[in-house]
Amino acid sequence: MKIAFIGLGNMGGGMAANLVKAGHEVRAFDLSDEALEAAEENGCTTFGSARDAAEHADAVVTMLPNGAIVRDVYTTDIIGQAPEGAILLDCSTIDVATARDVIALAEEDGYEMVDAPVSGGIAAANAGTLTFMVGGTQSAFERARPILEAMGKAVIHAGQAGNGQAAKICNNMLLGIHMIGTCEAFRMAEKLGLDPQTFYDISSVSSGQNWSMTSYCPVPGVGPQSPSDNDYQGGFATALMLKDLRLAMEAAESADAAVPMGQRAAALYEDFNGAGNGGLDFSAIIKTL
């Protein structure tokens, strides 16, 4: 299959490479020359514009920074430019309203499209073990599924257009809350004289167990290898967690949903990011406690 891939950043580069490994012809575009060079090394064919990459493609995958860019790329370079019958997949993390608007525009022009944001981070993007949360019609989902399966370990249909984004921001709001709570518990245990490893051994098999503890421990040297063991470099950047929490707060307001813990997590990450820590892994927030 000829697949255009637009957006070859930290996540998109690995995702495009896995499509090549799966036997697809990947037509790649990014504004970064460095990203294009890496894509060529990974077996992609590169193009000078998103429009050129989408031309003649059977499918178009996008991995872009925000909703405004997603809307612009689709309305300017993809909708009406990609061949009739191409399946469109936006894997960016954006607001629900924009996802639904763009999909509606694509459907008006005769395309099938899904929103398919990801969970898993850079390592999972490179390894092809992402989780995709997919919004769109059943028909669009079935067409998108084999493409997504080449890049991930789990592909889950979340329902109507925009529901992939809804699932992503709800999940990541919960992740932010869990990480802060996990950091608080470790710091309090330490101040009470409890060894971090001992606390981990107890809590990881007790009712306080959660992913932030057992798979991504914010304390160096405790649990499986995680960014805390690398001075909080790599992983899921604080700036990206804050982006998702901001989206969650916008969605909560639009849906009149009460999210007091989410609001507090967003405020704490706003402060942490504002102090110049946006490039550190989000688990580094333990440094503030």
Rank of each mutant, 00 (worst) to 15 (best):
232 Y>G: 08
140 A>Y: 04
221 G>T: 09
84 E>W: 08
163 N>E: 13
234 G>R: 00
97 A>H: 13
195 D>E: 12
207 S>Q: 11
106 A>E: 12
35 A>K: 11
241 M>R: 06
84 E>T: 11
71 R>Y: 02
247 L>Q: 07
287 K>S: 10
260 P>F: 00
230 N>Y: 04
223 G>D: 02
166 A>M: 13
286 I>E: 02
8 L>P: 14
213 M>C: 10
214 T>K: 14
45 T>G: 09
90 D>H: 14
82 A>V: 06
19 L>P: 09
255 A>G: 05
211 W>Y: 12
286 I>M: 06
9 G>Q: 11
223 G>I: 12
176 G>H: 09
110 G>N: 06
288 T>H: 09
100 R>C: 01
244 D>T: 00
158 A>Y: 00
159 G>S: 04
260 P>D: 00
83 P>Q: 12
118 V>S: 02
288 T>D: 09
96 V>E: 14
187 R>N: 10
213 M>E: 11
60 V>Q: 05
56 H>S: 13
208 G>D: 10
25 E>K: 15
83 P>K: 13
3 I>S: 08
22 A>T: 03
183 C>R: 04
134 V>N: 01
215 S>M: 15
203 S>F: 15
214 T>P: 08
153 K>I: 10
226 S>G: 08
168 K>A: 02
47 F>Q: 02
92 S>T: 09
122 I>R: 07
60 V>L: 05
13 G>Y: 02
74 Y>T: 05
183 C>M: 05
167 A>S: 15
145 R>A: 05
73 V>L: 05
123 A>S: 05
197 Q>M: 12
51 R>K: 15
154 A>T: 15
115 D>G: 08
51 R>G: 09
232 Y>C: 07
246 R>C: 01
114 V>F: 06
229 D>H: 01
212 S>P: 05
244 D>W: 01
81 Q>C: 07
111 Y>V: 12
152 G>D: 05
38 A>G: 04
206 S>I: 06
278 G>Y: 00
253 E>A: 15
132 F>Y: 15
27 R>N: 13
111 Y>E: 07
59 A>L: 05
203 S>N: 10
150 A>Q: 05
217 C>S: 11
130 L>Y: 10
